[in-house]
Simulated assay, not measured.
Amino acid sequence: MEKIADAHIHLDHYAQDEIRLIMDELDQSYCTNLISVSFDLESCKKNLKLAKQYSQVKPAFGFHPEQEIPSDREIAELLDWMNVHQDEMVAVGEVGLPYYLRSENPKISIDPYIHLLDDFLKFAKKWDKPVVLHAVYEDAAIVCDLLEKYNIKHAHFHWFKGDSITIERMIKNGYFISITPDVLYEEEIKRLVLKYPLNQMMVETDGPWLFEGEFAGKMTHPSMIHESVKAISKLKNEDLSFVYKRLYENTKMFYRL
């Protein structure tokens, strides 16, 4: 095993004993950093607390889009808090558009989510922060429009899924993606790895999200990333050590660690 960094995890969503276990085992997993993304203001505060407790945790602050849109007051409170703590965050995230929520309820309007994402991108531009994005399938093209509008280059599409036209656009714009452990068994993710340049790729767990295949029934742990790296190496037909170093350096560079 070589050094890894988990480019996207919801550490604050784990139980306390699970957090302690993950952090206690981080060194033996050769994992140097966890980019812990936030779900809402309470989540932001929890991630900041975790970052102060554990030097390996690097927090991103934002509002996960797969939930009811917050009130104007709640949005203002979150953005004000982020402004106060902008020097303690490595990125704005997780932000984006609610693809799955709208799939379940097509009556939900996307417009308020676009406006909220616009506010987050303005913040990222103002403070020169990378952006961690939840944007899949047709939503990704809308997000690309907004990123281009603000000329934001440091964009990370986590667990991305989408069409070839959008993929080519993302590659051309220099955006990054991150690959989850389902690269071991999901053909869609394998095809994405084959298409996307290694120098614009990272690896993540998105924990505590649970995986299938050989990970079925197991708590999602940063150590699973080692299997992802091996799978990427095989798909890319590249030396394993080279892939380890490239993915690790990509993450360190993107998040300025």
Rank of each mutant, 00 (worst) to 15 (best):
E2Y: 15
E2D: 12
A7C: 08
H13M: 12
Y14S: 10
E18W: 00
M23E: 07
D24L: 05
D24N: 08
D24I: 00
L26C: 03
L26M: 10
L26K: 03
D27V: 15
S29P: 03
L34E: 02
S36Y: 11
F39H: 10
E42Y: 00
S43E: 07
S43G: 04
K46E: 15
K46T: 02
L48D: 10
A51Q: 12
Q53W: 00
V57M: 03
V57F: 13
P59A: 03
A60M: 12
F63C: 05
H64M: 11
P65W: 06
R73F: 00
M82Y: 06
N83Y: 08
H85M: 13
Q86D: 11
D87Q: 12
M89G: 04
V90A: 09
G93S: 05
E94Y: 08
Y100Q: 07
Y100E: 03
L101Q: 03
N105Q: 12
P106S: 06
K107N: 12
I108A: 11
Y113Q: 10
I114A: 01
L117A: 10
L117C: 12
W127G: 02
W127A: 02
D128N: 13
K129Q: 05
L133E: 12
A135N: 03
V136T: 14
Y137G: 02
D139S: 15
A140K: 11
A140Y: 04
I142L: 14
I142R: 03
Y150D: 13
N151P: 00
H154N: 09
H156M: 08
H158Y: 03
F160Y: 15
F160T: 05
K161T: 03
E168R: 14
M170F: 01
I171L: 04
K172Y: 10
G174T: 10
Y175E: 13
I177R: 01
S178W: 11
S178E: 13
Y185R: 09
Y185W: 02
E186V: 01
E187H: 13
E187N: 14
I189F: 01
R191N: 14
L192G: 02
K195T: 13
N199V: 07
V203N: 12
D206Q: 00
G207H: 08
W209S: 13
K218A: 12
T220P: 05
H226A: 08
V229S: 09
V229Q: 04
S233R: 09
E238M: 11
E238Y: 02
D239Y: 02
D239C: 02
S241L: 14
F242L: 08
V243E: 05
R246Y: 00
L247D: 09
Y255A: 03
R256N: 15
R256E: 15
